[in-house]
């Protein structure tokens, strides 16, 4: 496997639940994390690690807080008034929510791809160049754009029409453009919020193949409704569910997290088993 030798994805984690690979500190360490919107507690008591250079999938029924948690990882929740994150959320050992941390700097390292492709109404080139220009990357912009488009397996389809509007692309191409846009700034982590839910099956396969390539260089966290997708792309899977408390509030909980194979074949929690076997959700 061509690799610079610096990082080799640790794939042979011990069978235990939720331990980081021994060679690297986890990208994210979550200790008793909860997220609330105003008075409403959306997600509570999450403890887990996310490993570097792997795909981690968040699965679970609607309203279980998986997207909410994803958006806490790059402080996108800051944009929603009343959103509040409690607990300890460490990114490479540093508290993401420490008062001295600038959310803008966080997002330069931790990119995001959204459910609905959201290219800017600009040319394909300008879409990819937006991030590098924002973070002030120096050097050959044409080269940066080409590299990102190649990285997102889109270059061959658009190299002769970089000046065309991004909206002239198909939905699947737009989503890969958004991935190119995200990797153009060379982040550490890419968060993907149901990146294939608006795509046709062929485009979905292309994006999934892309994830397999991208995880050699980036850590990826993906929220998905599609359990098969989690099984196909993710090394580790975290299953979330909704608990209804005595007052009738619906609160998202992490039920279990671990290697994808274990979660799908030998889940330790009955709720995981029910969800995966299709009895609930």
């Amino acid at each position: 496997m061509p690799d610079n030798g610096e990082h080799v994805a640790e794939r042979t984690a011990p069978g235990g639940v939720d331990t980081a690979s021994p060679e690297e500190t986890p990208v994210f360490s979550l200790r008793d994390v909860s997220v609330s919107y105003g008075d409403h507690l959306a997600l509570a008591g999450v403890n887990m690690d996310v490993n570097a250079r792997e795909v981690t999938a968040f699965i679970g029924p609607s309203g279980c807080g998986k997207s909410t948690l994803l958006r806490s990882l790059n402080r996108m929740n800051d944009l929603i008034t009343g959103a509040r994150v409690r607990g300890e959320l460490l990114y490479k050992g540093a508290d993401l929510y420490a008062p001295s941390v600038d959310a803008v700097q966080v997002r330069k390292r931790i990119g995001m791809v959204f459910q609905k492709p959201n290219p800017f109404p600009k040319s394909i080139y300008d879409n990819v160049a937006f991030g590098p220009r924002t973070v002030g990357m120096k050097g050959d912009m044409d080269g940066i754009v080409e590299k990102a488009l190649r990285g997102a397996a889109l270059w061959d389809e658009v190299s002769d029409r970089l000046r065309d509007n991004a909206y002239s692309l198909s939905g699947g191409q737009q989503q890969r453009l958004c991935i190119a846009r995200a990797i153009a700034v060379e982040p550490d982590v890419i968060l993907m919020d149901e990146p294939c839910s608006a795509l046709d099956p062929v485009s979905t396969v292309r994006v999934e193949d892309l994830m397999a390539e991208l995880k050699e260089r980036y850590s990826i966290v993906i929220v998905t409704h599609n359990m098969h997708q989690a099984a196909r792309v993710a090394e580790r899977t975290a299953f979330f569910s909704v608990q209804v408390d005595d007052a009738g509030n619906r609160i998202g909980r992490l039920i279990e997290a671990g290697e994808t194979g274990t979660i799908f074949t030998k889940p330790t929690d009955k709720r995981t088993e029910d969800y995966i076997s299709g009895r609930v959700g």
């Binding site: 997002r107 990119g111 959204f114 973070v135 958004c178």
Partner: peptide
Amino acid sequence: VPAGLREGAYALGASKMRVSMRVIFPA
């Protein structure tokens, strides 16, 4: 201007001023 464009720009580490001037204003 659709919220998705705003989020897309913020997710790339753009500041509020940059999102306003380079994404919202032209759109």
